[in-house]
């Protein structure tokens, strides 16, 4: 059978069907539209033939809407709402970031109620860099280039102390190929990453001196910000 030509039984085009049931070609419009003197392309949004039925949910509906708003707001404010927080160089944003940090006082890690219900790989939120460094230090490899901020280093030291021996144990017993590959991949990806993000993650951990000291200043900052909003940024 030749590939060319229209075979019978291939989907009938509407044109065929139109002709057979006796409608003018081109569907209803062609037969109806009066020929106007000015020919122009049909409007993109032709006038509506009928209006939508009015909405009516009643009191129940209002309550449901309020509930929905509450839920969405809650999720927005909770640690389950992830977003890239872009850090700008001016002072105002810097404090703004900390303000956000104080508002979202729980981390994603806190969200999880029981880690035994999750795959292990998800548990290590924010800890990969520490693990990696541990691994590298134990192997004696070169360090990954990092921003030389004293604060971060101090944090790391504090956290290492907190971690205790557990992490070490994991590194050694789980030192199989797959995990190594994961970690090397992580190293590559994180090297090229916005380090600022990680700074933020780490700084969101509880109980660091740095954060606590800022918390005290929080309220003052809020007021100052209010004024700034009205007058425009102060340079």
């Amino acid at each position: 059978m030749a590939g060319r030509g229209r075979g019978r039984g291939g989907g009938n085009s509407f044109k065929d069907i139109n002709e057979r049931i006796g409608l003018p070609a081109g569907g209803p419009a062609a037969g109806e539209a009066p020929v106007e003197s000015v020919l122009e392309p049909p409007p993109l949004f032709p006038p509506l033939e009928s209006r939508p039925v009015p909405l009516d949910l009643g009191v129940e509906g209002e309550y449901l809407l309020a509930l929905k708003r509450d839920f969405v707001e809650y999720f927005h404010d909770s640690p389950s709402y992830l977003q890239d927080i872009v850090v700008k160089a001016d002072i105002q944003r810097y404090s703004d970031r900390y303000q956000t940090a104080t508002l979202a006082s729980r981390t994603t890690a806190d969200l999880v109620c029981d880690w035994t219900h999750f795959p292990k790989e998800l548990k290590d939120i924010g800890s990969k860099p520490r693990r990696k460094r541990k691994l590298k230090s134990s192997k004696g490899n070169a360090k990954v280039p990092r921003k030389a901020e004293d604060i971060i280093n101090r944090l790391e030291e504090l956290e290492k102390q907190e971690e205790g021996s557990d992490a070490e144990g994991e590194v050694e017993t789980d030192g199989k190929k797959v995990d190594n590959n994961d970690e090397i991949k992580d190293a590559d990806s994180e090297a090229g990453e916005e380090v600022d993000e990680e700074d933020l993650d780490e700084e969101m951990d509880d109980g660091t001196d740095y954060r606590n000291s800022h918390f005290d200043n929080g309220e003052d900052y809020i007021d100052e910000e209010e004024d700034n909003l009205d007058d425009g940024p102060v340079y």
Binding site: S80, L82, T108, A109, L111, V112, C113, H117, F118, E121, L122, D124, I125, G126, K128, D182, K185, D186, S189, E190, E193, E197, E198, D201
Partner: peptide, 25 residues
């Protein structure tokens, strides 16, 4: 996990967190 990382081009960290959230809920 890693497959999600490579196709979304997000950081491992973010994908981990996302998956945590999705599983938790």
């Amino acid at each position: 996990l890693m497959s999600v990382v490579s196709s979304t081009k997000l950081s491992v960290e973010k994908v981990r967190q996302s998956l945590c959230i999705l599983v938790q809920y």
